[in-house]
Design a protein around this nucleic acid. Structure first.
Lengths: 188, 188, 188, 188
DNA sequence: GATGAATGAGAATTCATTCAT
DNA sequence: GATGAATGAATTCTCATTCAT
């Protein structure tokens, strides 16, 4: 092989795409993404066949990272509610600590350039998360479907993050209120 | 006397913008919007100085209509919870009955072409709604800010609408679950 | 109407396309075609929806002009052979006098960017020509199909034109040899 | 000793070029040609300095093969007309049996990427063919130049092949008509 | 006021060719 | 010798906005 496709370059392109999609939405030009990644315009298309593929990869990269952040290191031996609070805190903290990634992810989630295939793939990343949720909620919220509960959690997290963004000094307070609201919402 | 700008034409342009933004997002070309409205390409710019102004007007049109739909005809003499359920039902029913308008509104809400000015303006339309909410919730949820409660209501409505869209036969069921979830979420 | 699409501009674009297709083949860039026509790049696409449409229009323009040149003013009262010789001379003379148009037409004829639709359309222009041929040949070449005869005529004309191009001083000589060859080829 | 350029690889590249030029014209990308030949993109340029050189070589390869096919094995002792008919039949049969090669050759013949040098070279391959023709025609068609006769033969063959392509069941019939037409065309 | 032709700055992609490995 | 990643100029087409009619 002459030279393998460099994982570094691919990552640079993805990182650049995240930055620019966060700042400009999915309309960010591929030329700008390439330049900021330090590669030639044409090189981008060696790594991703077209812009949609790049956006899909960016989306999955972000979803994957988030999903991994959520479930990593949930301490054993916690009561169900505390286990879920742990996940909640991870979700809020990761998002608040990665505002650019979060912004990019939001843009991609609502974009019509992310096809159903990629969305399904993205959901799959959250299988562990859902399993954890499911297990922890046994006995607490059986009347609601896990999909509904997941959607409520996500939506309340978004709201919580908005409030934290406007009032970052009270990060912990908003985070706690958010979780409390979620716990009541799905309560028996 | 010079001919005044025709209100009819303006409405036609807005209606056309709603359809096309719903279908194509904010990228819908002004030329297409004009054609579907039955006016010339240039005429659109007589009514709106540029595309952003048109999008802002479209956004406010939709927000206003929705806000009005929510608060109109809330029956007097209902218990607080039932008054809010009434508003909730209106929100769900209007949205389910106007999928195109809802889609356009969602697109505009997440678009970065709607500036903070317009967003503030849009919020103002919901003053009555918030007042109603505030009044009805006196004694039920004082620990939460009205903004937070409004955001939760909106978010849960979006989720409810997604579930209805996927399973329209159980409109009433999902609507009730949604409200129940909301009521618990903000409960004491 | 603000301003009608100008026939002049359309003609300028077609004329420019003819020149550039003759010189560079169908790969001639639309930007160059527009510039040489004295219009903006985007204007070209107001007159022709895309490059293929422009090429098709150019093709039909040339075919039409050639077809008209062939059949115009065939003197009445000539013997069949002389009537066909008249057409032949017209074909040779028009082509020799319009080398650029001829070159463009050849490029377009062999290009795979001209679809079957356009080709059929182009053939239709030669209906009069074929009718004249058919009539004149009654009794001389009935054993051959008119399509075959037309193809032979065209092919021999191409050859004749090549010889004239290399040896323009003997235009009339080559023209006569060519016709004589054609007449023998299809003779009884 | 350095490894020599492999004749096999060169042939594979040429064969691939023939296929792809037949299918896509001279616009066929070098990368695709290389891939189909089973070699790397860059390797192609070790065998041919640039794309034009590859196209020229492809052209000459096809012309050479055709020229050889024409003159090989003309039976001695045939009358002149029958000797030429033999060549004619070879030309038609080879072309009908090798539609891909024929298509590629046609594309290259009309392409402006084949320079006059290559064309002259290509013609040289047909020296034997012309000699045979010349000899056979002594006394039949001295009034016409051998170049003219060759061009007529080629043109009529093209027409014949078109008719065969549309009506392959009557291969022999069209082949005979074609020859007959040729013979008359150049006849005394 | 209304019209829509005209504009030209982008935008996504392609591709022959080079050169580090 | 062979490889294929890297390059960036070139290409087609879109679209918000202007302005002559």
């Amino acid at each position: 092989m002459a030279r393998p496709l460099s994982e570094d370059k691919k990552d640079a392109i993805l990182a650049s795409a995240i930055e620019l999609v966060a700042a400009m939405g999915t309309g960010a030009p591929t030329a700008k993404i390439a330049r900021r990644a330090g590669v030639a315009e044409g090189t981008l298309f060696k790594y991703f066949p077209d812009k949609d593929a790049l956006l899909a990869a960016t989306f999955l990269d972000l979803e994957g990272e988030l999903a991994r952040a959520l479930v990593a290191g949930v301490p054993a031996g916690l009561a169900p509610k505390e286990r879920i609070r742990h996940i909640w805190n991870r979700l809020i903290d990761w998002s608040a600590a990665n505002p650019t990634r979060l912004k990019a992810l939001r843009q991609l989630k609502v974009s019509d350039r992310i096809g159903p295939e990629s969305r399904r793939c993205g959901e799959a990343f959250f299988a562990d998360f859902k399993a954890l949720l499911d297990e922890a909620l046994a006995g607490h919220a059986e009347r609601l479907s896990i999909d509904f509960i997941g959607a409520v959690l996500t939506a309340l997290a978004e709201i919580t993050l908005d409030f934290i963004a406007r009032d970052p000094g009270r990060h912990d307070y908003h985070r706690a209120i958010g979780f409390d609201t979620f716990w009541r919402a799905i309560g028996r």
